[in-house]
């Protein structure tokens, strides 16, 4: 069964499955130990390299297990981890498992433009107002009408010495928003890149000392970015294209990495995101097989009661009109052929002398005849008339 079409072949909303979008992706860390090598970390030795890629490798397959930053001894203690997801995803959660005592201040950011600009998704701090100038997150989520980056408690140290940073997109979103019908929520969950900014080592607690007394490094594993490849309800899976780029396998007459536009010939109505109630498939223009291109006209769309706004371009086979549904001047419909036939329009072939013009009736093919002339193409004298020598009045009354 095709998730994007029902049993009757009608389009329906379809979405890719939930995946860890960070799995196998390269992670850029602003600081990684082992260069120069020390007793426990050597970037040139695979057995002792604590590289950032360990954050997104398949769990349990790598050794060592954890990425480690360089030793931090004095401020600033900022270290960033950045992962590009390759295309837009709709986030569900982000999590990061710390291998040592978790930092007491973390900022979680996202980009929607492949790293050109960044906006916060949330903050995690033992002192929200001092670190980020924000109050602690209210228990019921944001008070405003839309999602916002809130400040949550810092990850707690676990008995094993580590800790877990966990963020759900719902944490920053007011209750009651529905992804299908809320553009602000759609915007909130959309990300092409994730950045985690670690800003205060656990060893400092809540203090802002510029120097740590004991050498410290951040250490973490299992960076998970739970989300769905963003296809706007028009694809059930994402694939790698011939250039190795992740793209949606677009259906419903859509195209683009995120199925966010209609295919060139599918512009009979505006592009829309699919919802659970309506697939909003892009519709092919109705050109009766006589055109390969069309354009969308909003005015015609409104006038049609929001049903059809496509205008066929470059009608071929001597057809004309918005849907290539009638014959162009100088041609008429052959009643023996269907409208989609390449030869549905026949040349008028009006007689150069007997006809008063070159344009025939587009339905009947009747040319306009001069006085006393008859026939579909005006090529004979009518009964009671005979041919004259004058091309201006080719038929005159029989004496």
């Amino acid at each position: 069964a095709d998730p994007c079409y029902d049993e009757a072949g009608e389009p329906r909303c379809c979405i890719p499955g939930l995946v860890n979008a960070a799995l196998g992706r390269e992670v850029l860390a602003s600081s990684t130990c082992g260069r120069p090598a020390n007793r426990i970390c050597d970037s040139s030795d695979p057995q002792r390299a604590h590289s950032a890629d360990l954050l997104t490798s398949v769990p349990g397959t790598a050794s060592p297990l954890c990425w480690r930053s360089d030793l931090l001894q004095r401020a600033p203690f900022n270290v960033t981890l950045t992962v590009a997801l390759g295309k837009a995803f709709e986030l569900v959660f982000v999590s990061l498992r710390f291998c040592s005592a978790p930092p007491t201040s973390v900022a979680l950011l996202k980009s929607q433009d492949h790293g050109r600009s960044w906006v916060p998704l949330g903050f995690f701090s033992s002192s929200c107002s001092l670190d980020y100038g924000r109050p602690p997150a209210p228990a019921g989520g944001p008070a405003g009408p839309g999602p916002e980056a809130l400040c949550f408690p810092a990850p707690q140290a676990q008995p094993d010495g580590g800790g877990l940073l966990a963020f759900s997109v719902q944490d920053g979103s007011p209750q009651g928003l529905d992804l299908d019908n809320s553009p602000v929520l759609q915007d909130w969950v959309t990300a092409t890149d994730i950045r985690i900014l670690l800003t205060r080592p656990a060893i400092l607690g809540d203090t802002r000392d510029p120097v740590v007394t004991v050498p410290y490094s951040y250490s973490a594993t299992e960076l998970q970015v739970g989300g769905r490849c963003k296809c706007n309800g028009h694809a059930s899976r994402c694939l790698l294209d011939s250039h190795g780029h992740l793209i949606c396998d677009c259906q419903h007459g859509t195209e683009g990495p995120d199925c966010s536009r209609c295919k060139p010939f599918f512009c009979d109505r505006p592009w829309q995101r699919a919802t659970g109630q309506e697939a909003h498939a892009c519709l092919a223009c109705s050109c009766n097989g006589h055109a390969r291109r069309c354009r969308f006209n909003m005015e015609l769309y409104r006038l049609s009661g929001r049903r059809s706004g496509g205008v066929c371009l470059n009608c071929r086979h001597n057809t004309a009109g918005r849907h290539c549904h009638y014959c162009r001047e100088g041609f008429y419909r052959d009643p023996g052929r269907v409208l989609s036939d390449r030869r549905a329009c026949r040349a008028c072939d009006c007689h150069p002398v007997g006809a008063a013009g070159k344009t025939c009736n587009q339905t009947t093919g009747q040319c306009p005849c001069k006085d006393g002339v008859t026939g579909l193409t005006c090529n004979r004298c009518a009964p009671g008339f005979q041919q004259s020598r004058s091309p201006v009045a080719p038929c005159v009354k029989t004496p």
Partner: peptide, 23 residues
């Protein structure tokens, strides 16, 4: 009765050279 088709050869184009169709 079906009338014969117009015979182009019978037309005198002397005064209507500018109207004469290209053959």
């Amino acid at each position: 009765d079906v009338m014969p088709t117009l015979d182009m050869a019978l037309f005198d184009w002397t005064d209507y050279e500018d109207l004469k169709p290209e053959v």
